[in-house]
Design a protein around this nucleic acid. Structure first.
Lengths: 142, 142
DNA sequence: TACACACCCTGAAGTTACTATAGAGTCAAC
DNA sequence: GTTGACTCTATAGTAACTTCAGGGTGTGTA
């Protein structure tokens, strides 16, 4: 199988596959005489694994860790659970942040229902106290 | 006022201010004889406006639009509301995505409570159907 | 045989919103 | 005159790709 076919099977672009190879998420493959990459079933499985992790918003670093643990085989469950639990915590944190944000936005939005000058929203944006959020370090999620 | 003082007042780094200037969010300023940037009250207000927008996770593009509308003055309220409502929609979309994600993660997490081989989580990650989410275009919100 | 056309290759640059670093200049105080 | 805090520009790095330029491969058709 060539790269285009693999891309279709995994619902991603050809460029993404080449990028994953460069990143070390996918192994380098054999090549045809014409220097085309050749893939087999094992590659499909690994790529789908990666794409599923990405769909769950895991970072490449997290995926690397999981792949290493998967390649080791055996009793890596507690390490795997750790990666997973941390990731769930990231998602949770981000949801809470966004919900707070949404509330602030809704409040500001109240400031302007019709045309007037100066605009209440702009005024609100100028007058807001800078929230502490910008001080915190972010996770890899937005 | 020099750049360091402005940075303190707006709770951001000196580099960020120079970056905003290069991006066109902040206007270029006058300089001292020694080529140091000089700022006044108007700059504080504009920078705080920008930082507040960023705290609300607006993109530079959105902020640019708002600043243009603010600079025009007058009756831009409906355009402003449009930018705002779109942004609120982005936040809302992202929250819903993340909540769906969280549920998927929780389900996968169930697959593994203790050590076993092959690990249920890894198996689940390999077997998942690739969610449609990756097809969709993302907003600027991670 | 010639050519079109779909597919593949590499390497580099662009995206977003910064942060970090290098190497140099400014300025006030001691 | 020198220390130290501050400033300047320009460049590279971050994450996870996407896009582009400039080519090569392989197959089908005229």
């Amino acid at each position: 199988m060539k790269i285009g076919e693999l891309a279709k099977l995994a619902q991603c672009s050809v460029e993404t596959i080449r990028f994953y190879e460069k990143e070390g998420l996918l192994p380098t493959t054999e090549r045809t005489l014409g220097n085309f990459r050749v893939y087999g079933p094992a590659h499909i499985e690994r790529l789908r694994f990666i794409r599923n992790c990405r769909a769950l918003d895991m970072s490449h670093e997290e995926i690397h860790t999981l792949l290493r643990l998967a390649d080791q085989g055996g009793d890596g469950c507690s390490a795997i659970n750790e990666v997973f639990d941390e990731h769930i915590a990231h998602v949770d944190t981000r949801i809470k942040e966004l919900e707070q944000l949404k509330q602030q936005l809704a409040e500001l939005r109240q400031h302007c229902q019709s045309n007037h000058n100066p605009c209440g929203i702009l005024q609100g944006l100028a007058d807001m106290e800078i929230p502490s959020k910008l001080d915190k370090k972010r996770t890899h999620l937005g």
